[in-house]
Amino acid sequence: MELDEERFGLIASEIGAAVLELVHHGQLVDRMAIVNALESKRRTVGNTLHKGGCRDAAALVRNNGDRS
């Protein structure tokens, strides 16, 4: 997956925010919890670009779990 720097920054920021939110709420931090947090955020934000960033971040976390 090729990403330009700005898009990569948005995706990294969304993943980091999801992890921090899970830690703050005392929840287990694993791949599916991060994906679920990102998908949940995607449903609540109104900005189309932000929705796309959350979607791409969730896809990146979800798909990279298949690599060994």
Rank of each mutant, 00 (worst) to 15 (best):
M1Y: 06
E2L: 07
L3C: 01
D4C: 12
D4I: 06
E5L: 08
E6R: 13
E6F: 04
R7K: 15
R7F: 13
R7S: 07
F8L: 15
G9H: 04
G9V: 05
L10T: 14
L10P: 10
I11P: 02
I11W: 05
I11T: 12
A12F: 00
A12H: 02
E14R: 01
E14D: 05
I15N: 03
I15Q: 02
A18C: 05
A18W: 02
A18D: 01
V19R: 09
L20Y: 03
E21L: 11
L22C: 13
L22P: 11
L22D: 02
L22E: 01
V23I: 10
H25K: 01
Q27E: 08
Q27T: 04
L28C: 00
D30T: 00
D30L: 05
R31D: 00
M32W: 04
A33G: 06
I34G: 09
I34M: 07
V35K: 01
V35I: 12
N36Y: 03
L38I: 01
E39L: 09
S40H: 15
S40A: 14
K41M: 11
K41P: 10
R42Q: 14
R43H: 04
R43G: 08
T44Q: 10
V45E: 10
V45P: 00
V45L: 03
G46T: 04
N47H: 07
N47G: 15
L49M: 12
L49E: 14
L49K: 11
H50D: 08
K51F: 11
K51P: 06
G52M: 07
G52N: 13
G52R: 03
G53D: 04
C54I: 11
C54G: 07
R55L: 08
D56Y: 02
D56K: 06
D56R: 03
A57R: 06
A58M: 09
A59T: 14
V61Q: 09
V61G: 08
N63V: 14
N64C: 08
N64T: 07
N64V: 11
D66C: 12
R67C: 11
R67E: 09
R67A: 12
R67F: 08
S68L: 15
